[in-house]
Design a protein around this nucleic acid. Structure first.
Lengths: 169, 169
DNA sequence: GCGCTGAGTATAGAAAAGTAAACTTAGGTT
DNA sequence: AACCTAAGTTTACTTTTCTATACTCAGCGC
């Protein structure tokens, strides 16, 4: 009997299938970064872009969508605005990543790594990620609190403190 | 001067802004897992569901989209079909995760972890991930090849072997 | 051979996203 | 004062994706 079956033993309900999925952390993260362009904007920030025109030029994304996504990312605290000033021009806003945005890097690294492994061009990936200074390639790994590297197969999911059942109809 | 500026030194072009983004591993991964429901289906597989009716019940996802997503995931080799048979019923297909699918776990763990940190209910997350056996909580981390844990700030991105410029117009 | 069940398919309408191009704004230059 | 530029906003239109519901299909029990 697994952890899902245990919770509701004897009630005839199924914790796995009848649970409330509205408070899922994966789904909540996707509400923000799951829209088209959002992760690609973050990718460009990570690669070093910061200006509206940078994003427009490299992504080819429509200006209205770009403006909407940037506003949302700033509202969520994933990006912050600062100002820059080219000589001879007025001050304009630029976008920089925050700690909250930096904390998305492991997830994005996971996507990058999977694409590198399964969908790269024959000659390899277009971009490499490496440890600044040390220069060694980096990757996303799962680790347990005690420091052991963990295989995906060795991860189990169990109901947490905010586990709830679907409201009855 | 960073690695992006170096590549095209003196050409007047900008490697960061005028590069070809069509071979980006992040974008290619998102082509597959970026559609609505796809990651949520994988989440349920990871939590232990395997049948069409399981996914429909727990996700509340329209049947045609569910069928489309499952077919795509099988075509991509992320899920595989097996058969199951309940006593008194005919054999029916079920869906199990493959190695290729397992390799998405670090990315999904990254999303889970970010949601747990920034968007969880006050009482905590709905689901916990832990190291089977050892029982300790697990998380997604970035590591360099030499084994050091790496902060997101310490990751730099540089042009890789398949780096190309945007075709001139 | 008839109904039941799980696993789909078909179709039509609604919502979201994408595209293109014109318009606005605010300061710095001339 | 008129002009330029980056960073948007607005509008109108097309395309894609999502949703809801009805329908089909294939075996098993009766």
């Amino acid at each position: 009997m697994d952890a899902w079956t245990e919770v509701l033993e004897g009630t005839g309900m199924n914790a796995r299938l009848d649970r409330d999925t509205s408070n899922c952390s994966i789904a909540r993260t996707l509400e923000i970064v799951g829209e088209k362009w959002t992760i690609l904007i973050l990718r460009e920030v990570w690669y070093g872009s910061s200006r509206f025109s940078d994003f427009e030029r490299v992504l080819g994304c429509p200006r209205n969508l770009l403006a909407t996504r940037l506003r949302m990312l700033v509202e969520e605290g994933i990006l912050a605005t600062e100002t820059y000033k080219e000589p001879g021009s007025r001050s304009r806003p630029k976008y920089v990543i925050t700690r909250k945005g930096m904390d998305l890097v492991p997830a994005v690294m996971g996507l990058l790594q999977w694409g590198d492994r399964y969908r790269a061009d024959p000659e390899g990936p277009a971009v490499l990620a490496r440890h600044r200074g040390c220069g060694a390639p980096v990757d996303a790994q799962i680790r347990c609190e005690r420091g052991h590297p963990v295989q995906a197969e060795d991860v189990e999911s169990v109901p947490g403190p905010a586990f709830r059942m679907k409201p009855a109809e």
